[in-house]
Simulated assay, not measured.
Amino acid sequence: MTADTVVAGRPSPGVGTAKKKDKKESGLLRYLVVRFLLIIPTIFILVTMVFILMRTTGDPITAALGGRLSADQLAERVAAAGYDRPLFVQYLEYLGNIIRGDFGTTISDNRAVSQVLLTYGAATLELAFYALIVAFIVGIPLGMIAAYYRDKGQDASLRVMAILFYATPVFFAGLLMKLIFSVWLGWLPTNGRASTRSDLLLQALPDKVGIYVIDALRLGNPQVIGDVLVHAILPAITLGLLTAGIFLRLVRANVIGTLSLDYVESARSRGVSEFRLVRKHAYRPALIPIITVIGLQIALLLGGAVLTETTFEWKGLGFQLVQYLQARDFVAVQGIVILLAIIVAITNFVVDIIAALIDPRVRY
Rank of each mutant, 00 (worst) to 15 (best):
L179C: 08
P285T: 05
G104A: 10
L259T: 05
A267V: 06
V134G: 03
N97H: 14
I52W: 11
T105H: 09
V278F: 05
I291F: 12
A341T: 05
L200V: 12
I180A: 14
R284M: 11
F181L: 13
S269W: 01
L229S: 02
G271K: 12
V293L: 13
G101M: 04
H281D: 08
G121E: 07
L95C: 09
E126K: 02
G245P: 04
I291Q: 11
V293M: 13
F165N: 08
L296I: 08
Q90D: 03
G192M: 03
Y31M: 03
M54N: 10
R328E: 12
F349N: 01
G303M: 01
G66L: 10
T62E: 09
A18G: 10
N221F: 00
H281E: 06
G226P: 03
L28N: 05
Q73N: 08
G226A: 09
A81R: 14
A253F: 11
G174I: 01
L287H: 08
A282G: 03
Y130K: 02
F275G: 14
L28E: 02
G96R: 06
S26G: 03
F275R: 15
T17K: 12
I43E: 01
G58A: 09
L92N: 05
R328S: 15
V50S: 10
Q297N: 13
L164G: 09
